[in-house]
Write a protein that binds this DNA or RNA. Structure first.
Lengths: 197, 197
DNA sequence: GCGTTACCGTAACGTACGTTACGGTATGGC
DNA sequence: GCCATACCGTAACGTACGTTACGGTAACGC
């Protein structure tokens, strides 16, 4: 036998480096050499950890989902349904620089998904999971609503949040933190007034 | 003297080809060779019409804005403020394949703007122009609202519409035409119930 | 109709990409 | 302590990109 490596740790560090490069230089700047430089290793090591560039992309995409998912879990578990819904939507918006970075990465993956079927599948899966999460919360807030209305409201809320994220990534002045919170709160007020409630 | 060319027509045809490639193969597939092939000419002619690739990108971005702007003008002019607002928002969503193509191009430019300051400036300018348009319409529908509320409502509506567009570009099943119209109409209902009205 | 000139196609250049092959190196078992 | 082997850095390959230089060609003025 010979020396053993911590493969999981390498994967984590490399996908973090991928993420960092993606956030800083955008999709065109995401090269294996840039990732290797950011991670402090060589392209050879990168391609010994991941089979090819797409495998690295897929892993970084999963990492992004895991991060946002964990934050959503934390926000959701703290409080009654109404507060949980608001907390989940707020954390999905991008008040901090860290989350603004995530928004840039998210936009990059969205654009990449337009030409890459694998990334497109991942995007659909993760986004629908997010919609399902919001649907469940809406149903908890408004138990009397039919499921179809809950689902429709959830897709609206998700589209609003992701739209805010995407637009704030390029124009943080117009889509300020305050504007984002305002938009989300206003949309949530609909839960009290719409659909015959 | 020698032969004269129709520079404006060439620019139009080339930026249309740029657009077509962008919609079909995404941002990574947008190369000068692909544009030339789509336009039925050579890369030499492309770079005789535009100084470099970025000039072509900028022109294509302006073309996208002009298209959406013209459609918005047409929708806006047909009817009273309330109907005009709804028409402008509906046309901004993507019920047809042509507009779904535009949505893909829009996402591509959004991602490119993350790394290209020139494209980022263009994006901010055009998006703010769109927000201003919606703000004016909201103010026409609700004349008694303070301008700040009109602006906040407009940014929300724009974020919702662009979010729907972006998400529908990758997942047209979840964000169907019906779901998009439903989301817009529900958001518009807020104009009657929110902000003390 | 002919020379001049604007225009465009061809082909090459330099660069950077993803990927691969190979050699060195460190590490675990014995 | 030494060997075998898993691991990684180096360097190269082929490709495709943006860009440039140059030669051919078609059209306008006279």
């Amino acid at each position: 036998m010979a020396r053993r490596r911590d493969l999981a740790d390498q994967q984590r560090r490399l996908s973090a480096a991928t993420w960092s490069v993606l956030a800083e230089r955008g999709l065109p700047g995401l090269t294996l050499r840039a990732v290797a430089e950011r991670a402090g290793c060589t392209t050879g090591m990168v391609l010994h950890t991941f089979a090819d560039k797409q495998a690295l992309l897929v892993h970084a995409r999963e990492l992004l989902h895991r991060r946002t998912g964990q934050r959503a879990d934390a926000a959701q578990s703290a409080g009654p349904p109404r507060a949980a819904l608001r907390a989940v939507l707020w954390q999905a918006a991008s008040p901090t620089e860290e989350k603004r970075e995530e928004a840039r990465v998210w936009v990059g993956f969205l654009a990449a998904a337009l030409a890459d079927p694998v990334l497109a599948d991942l995007h659909r899966t993760y986004n629908r999971r997010f919609v399902d999460r919001i649907t469940t919360l809406v149903a908890a807030v408004r138990p009397t609503w039919p499921p179809a209305d809950c689902a429709a409201t959830a897709t609206s809320l998700v589209a609003l949040v992701e739209g805010l994220n995407a637009l704030a990534a390029v124009d943080p002045a117009t889509y300020s933190d305050e504007a984002q919170r305002n938009a989300i709160d206003t949309a949530l007020d609909q839960l009290d007034t719409q659909r015959g409630q």
